[in-house]
């Protein structure tokens, strides 16, 4: 069954049971998102995709709200734009998002979103928390300074890989992503090192080792080894 609804004054069609977000994207209307990721369940936590329902004027997350016949949705009002900008400002004020020295600089959804909503400065106090960087895993690293607690890694690891290495501990501003039972990532033996969390992370919080500044290691012995192998047929 397909349904018809109005999005920003335009009539659009949608499948029954579809979310407002999917229907909008089908119709070519982009709604900014951060915690949403295709392929994993939605939690409606970042509040970036809030849209306004006509009539009640209520704001609902487009990712978790199902469409209904005759629904009138506004995804782009001056008020929503202001709220989105403020939300991005709040995220930037929460942790230490320093793009210039971030592994994801230029490839970051948070950075893109900040540009999209026109956030040129942050009006709130930076909280400058003291955060750790966990590089105990042989292949990957976790930089809590960049984490925005979107839980995309948690859901990816749980729903796709089935390992549930990631989760959240504590509450409020003290919330933290953890691996295993709050152990160093390298010591978590349920981690399959599949790297899906690296793909899922919207920022530079979870990254591949070897990708950051001053991490390149060179193996110059290899050249001598190759020469020796070729000339003397010695492979050790």
């Amino acid at each position: 069954m397909s349904k018809t609804l109005t999005l920003n004054g335009q009539m659009i069609s949608a499948r029954e049971g579809e979310s407002i977000l999917d229907a909008a994207r089908d119709a070519g209307v982009s709604i900014p998102t951060l915690c949403h990721m295709n392929g994993v369940g939605d939690v409606g936590a970042c509040r970036m995709c809030l849209v306004e329902l006509a009539g009640s004027g209520k704001l609902v997350p487009a990712c978790t709200t199902k469409i209904s016949e005759g629904m009138e949705v506004n995804s782009d009002t001056p008020q929503l734009r202001e709220y989105r900008r403020m939300l991005v400002e709040l995220i930037f004020s929460e942790r230490n998002h320093v793009c210039a020295v971030c592994v994801a600089n230029g490839n970051c959804e948070l950075q893109d979103l900040a540009i999209h909503v026109g956030m040129d400065h942050v009006r709130y106090d930076y909280l400058y928390p003291a955060e750790n960087v966990d590089v105990s895993h042989p292949m990957f690293g976790m930089d809590h300074n960049r984490c925005i607690l979107c839980t995309r890694c948690v859901r990816t690891c749980d729903e796709i890989e089935g390992a549930h290495v990631w989760d959240i501990t504590a509450r409020g501003i003290k919330s933290h992503t953890i691996t295993g039972l709050a152990e160093p990532w390298g010591e978590v033996n349920t981690c399959t090192s599949c790297g899906k969390c690296v793909m899922a992370c919207p920022t530079g919080a979870i990254f591949k080792l070897g990708a950051t500044v001053a991490e390149m290691e060179k193996d110059r012995e290899k050249l001598a080894f190759l020469k020796n192998a070729r000339e003397r047929r010695e492979w050790v």
Partner: peptide, 18 residues
């Protein structure tokens, strides 16, 4: 409210602190 916020959504988690 700041202490009791669960930390799931941005406005409550960071907004109450600010």
């Amino acid at each position: 409210c700041m202490d009791e916020s669960c930390g799931k959504c941005v406005p409550c988690r960071v907004g109450t602190v600010q």
